[in-house]
């Protein structure tokens, strides 16, 4: 009897914990976002620190964004040209690539790249500050770590990701145009006509709106994973990896729902 009760109690406990833990985690993540965001207008404003983070997330991501965007536009143009050529619709290449790029590829790939590059760095930095008690030291000096550490990074990620996405749009289209002109030998008017006809400001805006959400996801997840790091250097490694994985998955999943909700 006693044994049974013990086993049953333990099963319930395990079930309970496996239900509660994700809920608690979601609660903590939302808290990081809400507190970080609520702090935006709270003093000290940390403008310099935010600019520094924008420089880190934005400017330092430029090379990788420039490179990948050019090649994304290029390969997409190459492939769709092959497909469209089968039924003589090569002229649609520019427009197709443009819509796909601005609506989907640019925000998503920018989001994934920023998550991999800046998200991991943010999680690692805050995580190592946690395990080396630097965050306790901030608290001890009556400096709010949310205001000092999380707000600037969150804000910077939210501002910079759409900016990088706009660059991705532009350079991606340049890559597409370049391949169309110089590799596929299309004529400029032929390429341009449908491109201008098909790409709407709506496409661009919806891509940038997505990027804004992705920026918020990256900033929140990276700060959250860093802030709640446990267990020394190994913990920092874990926090870093899981920040990138969670942010990437969240970007891809939320991308679907935003696309669904938007016209």
């Amino acid at each position: 009897m006693g044994l049974h009760v013990g086993v049953i109690a333990r099963v319930f406990e395990a079930v309970g914990r496996s239900v509660l833990e994700p809920i608690e985690e979601v609660g903590r993540v939302s808290k990081v976002f809400a507190f970080g965001f609520a702090n935006v207008f709270m003093r000290p404003l940390r403008i310099r620190e935010t600019l520094k983070q924008m420089e880190f997330i934005g400017v330092q991501s430029l090379p990788i964004i420039l490179l990948t965007s050019f090649f994304t536009g290029a390969v997409f143009t190459l492939q769709s040209h092959r497909a469209f050529a089968m039924f003589g619709a090569q002229a649609m290449v520019g427009g197709t690539v443009g819509v796909a790029l601005t609506r989907e590829l640019a925000p998503t790939l920018t989001g994934l790249l920023v998550a991999g590059r800046a998200g991991s760095a943010i999680a690692a930095e805050i995580g190592s500050m946690r395990v080396s008690e630097q965050i306790d030291a901030l608290d001890a000096m009556a400096v709010d770590p949310i205001n000092y550490l999380i707000k600037p990074r969150l804000l910077a990620a939210i501002i910079v990701t759409p900016m990088l996405t706009a660059i991705y749009d532009f350079v991606g289209m340049f890559g597409s145009w370049y391949i169309a002109m110089y590799v596929l030998n299309m004529s400029e008017p032929e390429y341009m006509k449908r491109t201008q006809e098909w790409i709407d400001w709506d496409d661009i805006w919806s891509g940038l709106l997505k990027a804004l959400v992705f920026g918020a996801i990256i900033g929140t997840v990276a700060c959250y994973k860093g802030y709640y790091t446990k267990g020394g250097a190994a913990g920092v490694g874990q926090a870093t990896t899981s920040a990138v994985v969670v942010a990437s998955v969240a970007i891809l999943v939320s991308n679907f729902f935003i696309a669904w909700a938007l016209p």
Binding site: P44, M129, S132, E133, Q134, D136, A137, D139, A140, M141, A142, V143
Partner: peptide
């Protein structure tokens, strides 16, 4: 907390700042 000073077990200096800024940080803040 403003009435306390703490020397942490592993010093917990901010490794993104030099010694001057580490010490001056509470004053700047």
């Amino acid at each position: 907390r403003n009435r306390f000073g703490v020397v942490f077990q592993h010093a917990a200096l901010f490794d993104s700042m030099n010694v001057y800024n580490n010490i001056a940080f509470p004053l700047f803040e």
